[in-house]
């Protein structure tokens, strides 16, 4: 059997786990198992540090991409296990996916959803509050991102 992660080496680590109610089988080669953190599958399972622990074992670290919204880098997320903002999930989605799968399984979301998408007025109003706070803080990078977002929403609204 070939490793599910690199699709190259022979898989020699086989794990069966029940995640979110479903049995999931994982077949990995030694190197991928280690880099995905499976080597320590049976050791401590701290809550806060879990993600940081997982991510810091990944090999993708070294890029200096920062979140365009909050400015947090992937290394920093790996360092403290905390996402910087909602946009971080978008920007680092591919890098996060192996860890998310490890924490939650490959399950997809099936819970409740917001009743309806937030109205344009509400989104703009909130962004303006955030913009004001960012300017007061002299966080001009974030302020510029927020301003662009407001303009994007207004442009979308204008087209409709």
């Amino acid at each position: 059997m070939i490793c599910q992660n690199c699709n190259k080496n022979e898989a020699n680590m086989h794990m069966k786990r029940i995640v979110n109610g479903r049995a999931a089988e994982v077949h990995l080669c030694k190197d991928c198992a280690r880099s995905l953190g499976y080597g320590e599958a049976f050791t401590g399972f701290g809550f806060g540090g879990l993600l940081g622990e997982l991510l810091s074992k990944g090999e993708q670290i070294g890029s200096s991409v920062r979140c365009s919204f909050c400015g947090k880098s992937f290394e920093e997320i790996a360092g403290d296990g905390k996402m910087g903002c909602a946009e971080c999930y978008n920007i680092f989605y591919d890098k996060l996916l192996p860890s998310l799968n490890r924490i939650h399984g490959k399950a997809s979301y099936s819970g409740s959803r917001p009743q309806k998408e937030a109205s344009v007025e509400l989104r703009i109003e909130e962004l303006k509050v955030a913009l004001k706070a960012a300017v007061e803080q002299q966080n001009f990078e974030l302020a510029a991102t927020l301003r662009d977002r407001i303009n994007d929403i207004l442009a979308e609204g204008g087209e409709q």
Partner: peptide, 10 residues
């Protein structure tokens, strides 16, 4: 969390 603000640690 509110979408237009970074999470508390940021």
């Amino acid at each position: 969390n509110i979408r237009s603000f970074p999470f508390p640690s940021r």
